[in-house]
Amino acid sequence: MLQSLHIRLYRQFKDFKLDNLKQVNLIVGKNTVGKSSLLETIRILLDTNKIEVLNDILILRDEHHGNPEQFIRSLLPAWIDMKGLLELLDISGNNKSNNFRTLAKYDSLEKRIFFNKENSDQDNPDYSRLNDFIRNRDIRRNRWSYDYTYRYMGIVSNTYNYYQNLWKDKRFSGDDKLAIELLQKILPELEEIDFTYTAVAKLKGINKQIPLGSLGEGFKRLFNLALEMVYARDNVLLIDEFEVGLHHSIQEQIWDATLMMAKELNVQLFVTTHSQDCIYGFARALNKRDDIDGQAIRLEAHEGKIHALAMDKELLFTIAETQTEVR
């Protein structure tokens, strides 16, 4: 489990620390304060394919540039003077099992980018690979072609076809009951998902199979959530904007199922949201469980610095009960 995070000079973050990370971390705050950037730093920290993940981050943000300098500049705070700065990106975290420490350095003099893990070769330049990425559109488009050491759910849902391909890899076996249970929060009659041809759902008492595509965006989002939880077993799942496509009235139920899966599958969650109902739903679901700890973290910008304000389980419940605005 990732226990702490220290970010220097990444987008909005000059020098930012998060201690006491919990198993479930809900990140709130105003637009542009850095919620998505925070998820990005965790990706950079946990990903073993450094260049691919930076590339992916820029594609998701529509920030991709044609040259290496612009590529890296996009990831740095706007006020940074590139010249003469040797160490620009520095994200480190304390991981109980692995003792992660990842450094990304940019050497402006030699135009080289280093992506090293502690104890590995500090001087291993990866610039040529970066160049390949920036110049090769085919590789750039192929976002999901490499293996994650964590899972990431962006704002745009993955297609059923994407998961159908994963299913064929037999990476879904054993845990499907948990996933079905989560999906039943939105579709109680659901009995089974069949991926043999097109993705279809079998419903209780109905003899006909229904294409998943006909069940709407909310179901698709939940389907993404359920399967990503399964794939994130014993690892980290990052979710940008939990509430996308989901009705406000079912947030608590979905959190019930999400927490159940996080516990059963030992998944650490980092989730952003703009939704008050999502926060309250999370707070109420969390309050029902003694076996999993969680918190909300609000990011606030003040005088050019990002502050993190943590709200513990008990406080979150009080916040939900008193309908207090905390976004």
């Binding site: 609000r298 009080t318 207090t324 605005e325 905390v326």
Partner: peptide, 15 residues
């Protein structure tokens, strides 16, 4: 009791 709860919540509240 409600005033005490609301007070504790509003210290963390963003409004």
């Amino acid at each position: 009791e409600k005033a005490r709860s609301k007070f504790i919540a509003e210290i963390a509240g963003s409004k």
